[in-house]
Design a protein around this nucleic acid. Sequence first.
DNA 1: CGGTTCGTTGAGGCCCATCAATCTATGTGG
DNA 2: CCACATAGATTGATGGGCCTCAACGAACCG
Lengths: 258, 258
Amino acid sequence: MIALNRSLNDVRLRATSIEAPITRNRLSVCSLLSPEERQALDDAMLPAKAVGANKDLALEGDDVDCLYVVAEGWACRYIMTAAGGRQITSVLIPGDVGNLDTFMFDRLDYSLRTLSAAMVVSLPKRRARALAAVHPGIAQRFAALAMVENTILSAKAVSLGRRSATERLAHFLCELSVRLDPLSDIKTQFELPMTQEHLGDSLGLTSVHVNRTLQQLRKEGLVETRKGTIIVPDLGKLRSLSGFDERYLHVPAITGST
Amino acid sequence: MIALNRSLNDVRLRATSIEAPITRNRLSVCSLLSPEERQALDDAMLPAKAVGANKDLALEGDDVDCLYVVAEGWACRYIMTAAGGRQITSVLIPGDVGNLDTFMFDRLDYSLRTLSAAMVVSLPKRRARALAAVHPGIAQRFAALAMVENTILSAKAVSLGRRSATERLAHFLCELSVRLDPLSDIKTQFELPMTQEHLGDSLGLTSVHVNRTLQQLRKEGLVETRKGTIIVPDLGKLRSLSGFDERYLHVPAITGST
DNA sequence: CGGTTCGTTGAGGCCCATCAATCTATGTGG
DNA sequence: CCACATAGATTGATGGGCCTCAACGAACCG
């Protein structure tokens, strides 16, 4: 079972054939939904669209009428300050819903942008609301996803508020290692389609300091980087360095696995 | 202990009308719920309990079986880092649900503590889930509250990641001025039952630097402080200084007002 | 009065930002 | 194939915002 789910490549291959149902979305892929609810959600999704890297899907202030699901590739939510600073508030990986809150609100409070080339699936807000009004399980699914985002945002607040640059970066990598492969906690290597500037905008640092911090981690043998992929030789060390505790991600509750 | 007794008396005076329904909670007080849904939620609430200031209601790692609603007084969620740092991830004001995510998860990812003396109402998790499984409106209400918390957490990430100490403090005060009185945006004075250390733990600063930052704001005539109350002579200036835009709080969507 | 909590002030230092230059990899057009 | 452009990674020098440590003041209460 774990072995089946371990390979992301399988899923990605299937997702590229647009005819196949979109399997990588955290809205409907959940054993907690009834089969009818899952089917209803999948039926409401519009066909996937290909988007290039560093493209804004929507801008802060927009009235968006669709939920965007990142089926493939990475994206992010970001907010600009008056002074021109950029803060990435969420990094979105395959399966994530980019603008969950559009389910409730009209105005977008952040901008939505791809980090890498991506496939994006749209779910019309009206249909999502209509489904949630009929199926309590779907409404609860929205609540569940919102609550996980809540814990991730809380963890980010802890990092931004109270952790050093090294700890922040290490913690972020630990978080990704779990989110990218929820069912195996031995994900010690993964592609990271983010520039050091992206990392800085996510971690509240400058790209220059991200660079130096990465060097520090490399020097201590905690990470290796090769052309956009991250290798973590000793996940345990990285976790203890950053105080990472994966339980806040609530993988069982979200995947529906035991 | 002594301070506790005094505070308890204080609260009891106001709370003597315990027979009356708990009106100050953002779960059921919402015109978007049907009258039956609202009634069902209110009926599920347990009687309010008085709690002193700086008391932990629950600790990180606890398996909590109730949702705690802060009916009166202030509270917060906080997370300790391995190094001993404290980060307040959310400040809870009257009406807020302290642990919304307990609706979905068993383990608490943060500690829950009062800031001032408070009245706390409990809603058993099982009853909340049972209600949500039957009433889609209630499930959506949980989703809506979680999504507002997400926008507040995102704004906090922006502050922690990209704003100076002065901007952070100013932004936080602007946020409170709206949250404390959603229906009038002219709330230029309010009680703030937080020490400078509390503020520091919320803003990712030390209490010493909060002190200096407050002095700065006072010197510029942007805030006045009197015994636990904050006065904002010119809300517009404070807002533009901190880049505050109240729309992210989505007051209309949450209160159900137009 | 003495204890405690909270606010205030000062001196010194570090982490990270800022500014700027260089290097590398990749891609592009002639 | 080379000249050139561009994006991203790297390095150095310098400075500042905030932390740390420490002491003192103020308010409150037993």
